[in-house]
Write a protein that binds this DNA or RNA. Structure first.
Length: 486
RNA sequence: CGGGCUGUGGCGCAGUCUGGUAGCGCGCUUCGUUCGGGACGAAGAGGCCGGAGGUUCAAAUCCUCUCAGCCCGACCA
């Protein structure tokens, strides 16, 4: 017992990253696979993260003039079929509802769909709602005075994925989908860029996530979009993950659904529509960007619980220690910090490891010493035991928010440094090949967009399992990022 | 949809070749000693072995059919 500190998660990231990821999901009690193929059950601690994300972002959308609404989960197949590229993109992953009632089997065993209850027109379970919202918008928009129309719904969608991975790619996943309509292209494009900016701000300021904003290449565009914008993040294994997208749909959906308005001069014109989203996938991204070999490391501003107060009981003075713990938690709450005393009937070390695996940003340990001296001992999750410090009660309470802010800033900086360190420059397709051959495909390679025109480009990227992530804004669209991706 | 594999207490597995009526680790319960970077002892609870049919005195084990899931490929937030 000494050499190498035992890690809470086996295997480590280095040993087997995908397996490590699964183990963190389990150890942090975030979610589990459900009896339904490819669909996850999100457990309370995991769902609390999502609720916090919604809680922060939803008001931002409302400030921007977006109104929430709710559209059906089932979409007539004919709706989906209307936009050619869109159907092609989603057809294969649609679940279809063909019947509407069940009855007992004649032999008394189990249920079967009633033979007479086949639907005349089947429905698909929504894989995304452009079509049914487009249909509604066509009715709701009459005049230029109705524009822009900004709608959003928080919901789940279903895509019958071949290779599900919890949070990252599940059959059903939760998201919000914004669907806006504008009078002209300028409005739609501005919308895409504005919302992308909101995502970026949200990721940086709340998730401590640094990503690259950019434009998708044609091959990676949303089916039915003229332009897709995204934020691309780098996971700790060097793979890319698309964290969110905004789509400029041009007049493609307006044409097929008849989303038209009468302009000021009396003429009729098509709307320019957009759609955009981020999903519960971000929870998976948080794990893969911030997690370590002891489990989850939660960004403080989105953490379901920011501070855990851990009583260290020895059998005497227990009541007094508990009272002191409660006082600390109350003090923190007074500062707007979510804190809870871990009163569970468990051994202290087990509680401590539970807090570590769940990634609670700040852990407070209170035993007889602290109580007698009126001090507080605390440890930062992102740094670990080296950060253990003891302060007076007042000093700690007053400074706790500052500590959480420092945790956030450090996590963001660390994450950004990781991406920068693992982003490599190249000039030609040959550079791309050399890099991913040698380094087994870690990180991003940035090359001039001209490389996309190389006649061998498609064959090479396919061969090496590479994708074009985006053409970053920061390079003015002159470069493209190449990487393996989730 | 092609190729490979697995179904045995909550979880992870052994037992299957060579049929004899189910076992291990973790977890869980109780008691005691413990509790500041993962404790130990003792005593317990919990499974008709994915399902259906067959062979047999006897099936987790052999045969037939069936269902479900996993991994690799094509597809994807």
């Amino acid at each position: 017992m000494s050499k190498k500190a035992k890690t809470a998660i086996t295997p480590t990231r280095e040993e087997n990253f995908p397996e490590w990821y699964q183990q963190v999901v389990k150890a942090a009690d975030l979610a589990e696979n459900s009896p339904v193929r490819g669909c996850m059950t999100v457990k309370p601690y995991g769902w609390a993260i999502w609720e916090n994300m919604v809680g922060v972002f939803d008001p931002w959308l409302k400030d921007y003039g977006v109104q929430n609404a709710s559209f059906p989960m089932l979409i007539p197949v004919s709706f989906l079929s209307k936009e050619a590229e869109h159907v092609e993109g989603f057809a294969k992953e649609c679940a279809v509802v063909t019947h509407h009632r069940l009855e007992a089997n004649p032999d008394g065993n189990g249920l079967r769909p009633a033979p007479a209850a086949e639907l005349e027109e089947p429905y698909v379970v929504r894989p995304t709602s452009e079509t049914i919202i487009g249909d509604a918008m066509a009715r709701w928009i009459q005049s230029y005075r109705d524009l822009p129309m900004k709608l959003n719904q928080w919901c789940s969608v279903l895509r019958w994925e071949m290779r599900p991975r919890i949070f990252l790619r599940t059959g059903e996943f939760f998201w919000h989908e914004g669907h806006n309509a504008f009078a002209d292209h300028e409005g739609a494009k501005g919308d895409c860029l504005h919302v992308l900016g909101l995502y970026d701000k949200f990721f940086r300021e709340y998730l401590a996530v640094d990503g690259v904003m950019g434009i998708k290449t044609e091959a990676e565009r949303f089916p039915g979009a003229n332009e897709t914008y995204s934020i691309e993040c780098m996971m700790q294994d060097g793979k890319a993950l698309q964290a969110c997208t905004t789509h400029d749909l041009g007049t493609n959906f307006a044409k097929t659904f008849g989303i038209k308005y009468q302009s000021r001069d009396g003429g009729e014109a098509l709307c320019h529509t957009t759609s955009w989203a981020f999903t519960t996938r971000m929870i998976g991204a948080l794990i893969m960007m911030h997690g370590d070999d002891d489990g989850m490391v939660m960004p403080p501003r989105i953490a379901p619980q920011q501070v855990v107060v851990l009583p260290v009981l020895k059998g005497d003075n227990d009541a007094a220690i508990m009272a002191y713990c409660a006082k600390i938690a109350e003090g923190l709450k007074g500062q707007g910090i979510s804190a809870k005393v871990d009163e569970r009937d468990m051994r202290t070390p087990d509680k401590m490891w539970d807090a570590i695996k769940k990634g609670i940003p700040l852990r407070v340990e209170v035993g007889g010493r602290e109580m007698e001296e009126g001090v507080v001992t605390h440890v930062r999750r992102d740094i670990g035991r080296e950060s253990k410090a003891t302060q007076s009660f007042d000093e700690f309470i007053a400074g706790a928010q500052g500590v959480l802010d420092a945790v956030h800033d450090d996590m963001l900086a660390k994450q950004r440094a990781f991406r920068e360190k693992n982003t490599h420059e190249g000039q030609t397709l040959g550079d791309v090949i050399a890099h991913f051959d040698k380094n087994k495909g870690t990180g991003f390679v940035r090359v001039p967009v001209e490389v996309l025109g190389d006649s061998a480009f498609l064959a090479v990227t396919k061969d090496l399992s590479l994708t074009t992530r985006c053409m970053p804004f920061e390079d003015g669209g002159k470069t493209v990022l190449i990487a393996k991706a989730y």
